[in-house]
Amino acid sequence: MRIIKAAVLMGAAAMLSWAPARADIVPPFKGNDTGGIISYELAQRVDARQLAVEHCASYGKVAKFLAVDAQYGGYVSFACRWVPYGASQRPLRTLY
């Protein structure tokens, strides 16, 4: 019985050693109802403002850009905020 368990353990270890770790894969666009991040490479290819506005609009909020890390592997971060009644800021509107 020990030999069978050892063989199964060795087989499982061999199978896991062939699989990639996949710890470095991050989606180019990720967010929730409080905000999100857009990879800098994606932001150079598409309109990052439009992505953020559409994402926040799906929650009934407006986008506020926070920071840009303009380097390889960097991100554009944004927050989704409520626009209070009577605020001087108007929601950003984009054309489809």
Rank of each mutant, 00 (worst) to 15 (best):
S88M: 13
Y96C: 10
G35D: 10
V46C: 11
G86E: 06
L42M: 07
P28Y: 01
C80R: 03
V62M: 15
K61M: 02
L9D: 03
V8W: 01
D33I: 03
A6K: 02
D47I: 11
P20S: 00
A13V: 02
S39C: 06
F78Y: 14
I38P: 12
Q71L: 04
T94Y: 09
A43Y: 05
Q71G: 07
F29A: 12
Y72F: 05
E41D: 13
V26M: 07
A13C: 06
Y96T: 15
R45N: 11
A7W: 06
Y85V: 13
D47N: 15
F65K: 01
L92V: 15
F29S: 11
A43G: 13
S58W: 05
V46F: 04
I25T: 09
L42S: 14
Y59V: 06
T94R: 15
M10E: 03
L9G: 08
L9I: 02
I25C: 07
V76H: 15
P84E: 14
I37P: 03
A70D: 15
R49D: 12
R45K: 12
Y75L: 05
Q71C: 00
W82G: 08
K61H: 08
V53H: 04
Y59R: 06
S88K: 13
D47T: 07
S77P: 05
A12R: 01
V53T: 11
Y59G: 06
V83N: 14
Y72R: 11
M1D: 01
P27L: 01
V8E: 06
P91D: 13
V68T: 10
W82I: 14
L66G: 01
A7L: 12
A7R: 00
R45V: 13
I37F: 09
Y40M: 10
R49F: 11
V76A: 03
I4Y: 02
W82H: 15
I38E: 08
L66M: 12
V83S: 09
M1A: 03
P28Q: 01
Y72K: 11
P28D: 08
P84G: 10
L42N: 10
L42E: 10
L51G: 09
F29D: 10
A6T: 04
A79C: 03
A7D: 00
G86I: 06
D33Q: 10
N32P: 00
P27C: 04
E41S: 14
T34H: 09
N32C: 05
L16C: 08
G73A: 02
A87V: 08
F78L: 04
R45M: 13
G31N: 08
K64M: 12
P28M: 00
R2K: 04
Y85P: 14
W18Q: 14
C56G: 12
G73F: 04
G86F: 09
H55G: 03
S88P: 08
P27D: 07
M10Y: 11
R45T: 13
V53F: 03
A6I: 06
G11A: 07
T34I: 10
E54L: 07
A19S: 09
A14M: 04
G86R: 11
S39L: 02
V83R: 08
Y59N: 06
